Computed example of a mutant assay.
Amino acid sequence: MSDVSQIVIHIGSFEFQLHQSILVWLVICVLMAIVAYIAGKKIENADPSVAPKGIVYWSEELYNLCLYVIKGNLKETTAHYLPMFGTIMIGMLLSNLVGLVGFQNPTSNISFNATLALMFFLMIQFHGITKSGLIARLKELTEPMWLLTPLNVIGELATPISLTMRLFGNILAGTIISLLIYTVIKSVAPIGYIGLLITPFIHMYLDIFSGVIQTYIFFTLGTYFLGQQVAQQED
């Protein structure tokens, strides 16, 4: 798949293009579904008196990891949103790390990131309206004084834009930097091959560390804003 840039599907006069990043995301989704099914069967048959191991153990660790990221923001509503956000979180993490095996990161595609950010935005607005009503939600945009309404509207719209561009910029930048490093190494070969000694450390930061951090930041910020609408706020 790393040699496939896109798949073009023709339906009559309509042309539909699937970019490599989207193809990678579809493969990740299928693999996650298969693993989740197997893990579910293993968990159903697991003996609770025996310490978990294998896929059951790792499923519990991923569950606790996702719980750690979103529980502080969603509070009592965490159990309701955990299945969806936990699944997307793991998918995004894999999307950020898939560049390690030579595929294009789905998160380096701005449309992919914008879709996830728009999901958060629509959920925030939907719950804001259902919690207090449309009139009350619109009134929030005029607080603390009506002169600040334009700034409040911009602030609301800035949420999906910020989530999209932060993730897109960091993942794409890591991809570009890695490509430039390998280009330099190739251009000064064979001496440049010495540079391959440091590339594992570069990937540790650009792909692993940055990928994990960006996933954490995306869902921490997204669930924070959502939590303002769905979770009970402490006095």
Rank of each mutant, 00 (worst) to 15 (best):
M1L: 12
V4P: 03
V4H: 03
S5W: 07
S5L: 10
Q6D: 03
Q6A: 12
V8L: 14
I9Y: 11
I9R: 07
I11C: 04
G12C: 06
S13W: 06
E15F: 05
Q17G: 04
L18F: 10
H19V: 13
Q20T: 09
Q20G: 09
S21V: 09
S21G: 08
S21E: 07
L23F: 13
L23N: 09
W25Y: 12
L26E: 05
I28K: 07
I28E: 02
V30L: 13
M32W: 14
A36G: 04
I38N: 02
K41T: 05
K42R: 14
E44N: 14
N45W: 09
A46C: 05
V50Y: 06
K53G: 10
W58F: 15
W58L: 11
S59T: 10
S59W: 08
E61F: 13
Y63T: 08
Y68N: 06
V69S: 03
V69C: 05
V69I: 15
N73I: 00
Y81C: 01
Y81G: 00
L82I: 12
P83F: 11
P83S: 08
M92C: 06
M92K: 02
L94M: 14
S95D: 03
L97Q: 01
G99W: 12
L100Q: 04
Q104P: 11
N105P: 14
P106L: 04
S108G: 13
N109G: 07
N109I: 14
I110P: 04
F112A: 02
A114C: 07
L116P: 03
A117T: 03
A117M: 05
M119I: 13
G128A: 04
I129C: 01
K131I: 01
L134S: 04
L134F: 12
L134V: 09
I135G: 03
I135K: 11
A136M: 08
R137F: 13
K139M: 06
K139R: 08
E140Y: 08
E140K: 15
E140S: 11
L141M: 14
L141T: 01
M145I: 12
W146E: 00
W146C: 00
T149Y: 10
T149F: 13
T149K: 11
T149S: 09
P150A: 04
V153K: 01
I154Y: 07
G155W: 02
A158K: 05
P160T: 01
I161W: 10
S162N: 07
L163P: 02
L167I: 15
F168I: 05
G169S: 15
G169F: 14
G169P: 08
G169C: 12
N170V: 15
I171L: 06
I171T: 10
L172A: 09
A173D: 09
T175V: 09
I176F: 14
L179I: 12
L180T: 05
Y182L: 15
V188R: 04
I191T: 06
G192R: 14
Y193I: 05
L196C: 13
L196D: 05
L206K: 11
L206G: 06
D207G: 10
D207E: 08
S210F: 06
V212L: 12
Q214F: 09
Y216S: 04
I217R: 10
F218K: 10
F218I: 11
F219G: 00
F219S: 00
G222D: 03
T223H: 05
L226F: 01
G227V: 00
G227M: 00
G227W: 00
E234R: 02
D235I: 02
